[in-house]
């Protein structure tokens, strides 16, 4: 049965419109399982000195936008799935926090340059369809970060237990990972699984300056700044 559902090729799954439709479909259930912020994000937000604008890129149901709202004046959550943005809007009302939500694409950000003081870009980069788009998205993050702005970026890593991958390999791999809905239906989602080396290489290729990088809970993480010498 599973094979029948997965006749689509990886090229079908990598289409941004496909990924968006998948998250729109699973939004309600996905959101239920995303109640708490990640400790890595909490640690990062504890380390920043705040600012005027915070951006949660790939905000999903807004669990990190809510936290971001406690350290910046204006927290902006951006996601490609309108279904997830509606989940975020509901949570905002329930939990009484204030953020601005944007329906947008991580590789073409609708924000002015030098405006973001604190960025959170976690568990999203790995959904972008190809290397060029992923690096472009990181370049966009660099563009919108203010001179003193800092961001936390994460992506799923080959070091994760679920993959039988060589974490020391030069490049990662493309795959689909199933989301299982309560009724048992599985929905494949496109992922690019990064090796820590390639993750850093893509960050550097984008022009971001990497302050720190580490692997935690099967994810590659980096804290980054916009480069000082950009045009």
């Amino acid at each position: 049965m599973k094979d029948d559902q997965q006749q689509d090729t990886i090229d079908d799954h990598r289409q941004p419109a496909r990924l968006r439709a998948v998250y729109d479909d699973i939004a309600a259930h996905f959101s239920e399982t995303r109640a708490y912020p990640w400790p890595e994000v909490e640690t990062f937000l504890d380390s920043v000195s705040g600012g005027a604008v915070g951006l949660d890129l790939g905000c999903g149901n807004g669990r990190h936008t809510e936290l971001l709202d406690t350290v910046v004046k204006r927290a902006v959550g951006c996601d490609v799935s309108r279904g997830l943005l509606h989940e975020a809007m509901t949570k905002m009302t329930e939990n009484n926090w204030e953020g601005q939500l944007l329906h947008g694409n991580a590789a073409t950000l609708p924000l002015d340059a030098d405006t973001v003081d604190v960025g959170v870009y976690v568990a999203t980069l790995h959904h972008l369809p190809d290397k060029e788009t992923r690096v472009e998205s990181l370049r966009e993050l660099s563009r919108v970060l203010s001179a003193s702005g800092r961001a936390l970026v994460s992506a799923w890593s080959t070091a994760h237990d679920r993959f039988n991958a060589d974490a020391d390999a030069k490049t990662g791999f493309e795959t689909t990972v199933d989301w299982t809905l309560p009724g048992g239906e599985t929905v494949p989602r496109f992922y690019y699984i990064y090796t820590p080396t390639e993750f850093e290489r893509d960050l550097e290729a984008s022009g971001l300056a990497v302050d720190d990088s580490f692997v935690s809970s099967g994810n590659c993480y980096a804290t980054v700044r916009a480069t000082a010498n950009r045009q």
């Binding site: 289409q15 941004p16 419109a17 496909r18 968006r20 439709a21 479909d25 951006c78 490609v80 309108r82 943005l85 509606h86 809007m89 939500l101 944007l102 329906h103 947008g104 694409n105 073409t108 609708p110």
Partner: peptide
């Protein structure tokens, strides 16, 4: 729409095949 600006580039705005 519904208080949320749709800032997707035009080529990503069309309804996707489910």
């Amino acid at each position: 729409e519904d208080g949320i600006p749709n800032m997707l580039p035009p080529d990503m705005r069309e309804e996707a095949p489910a």
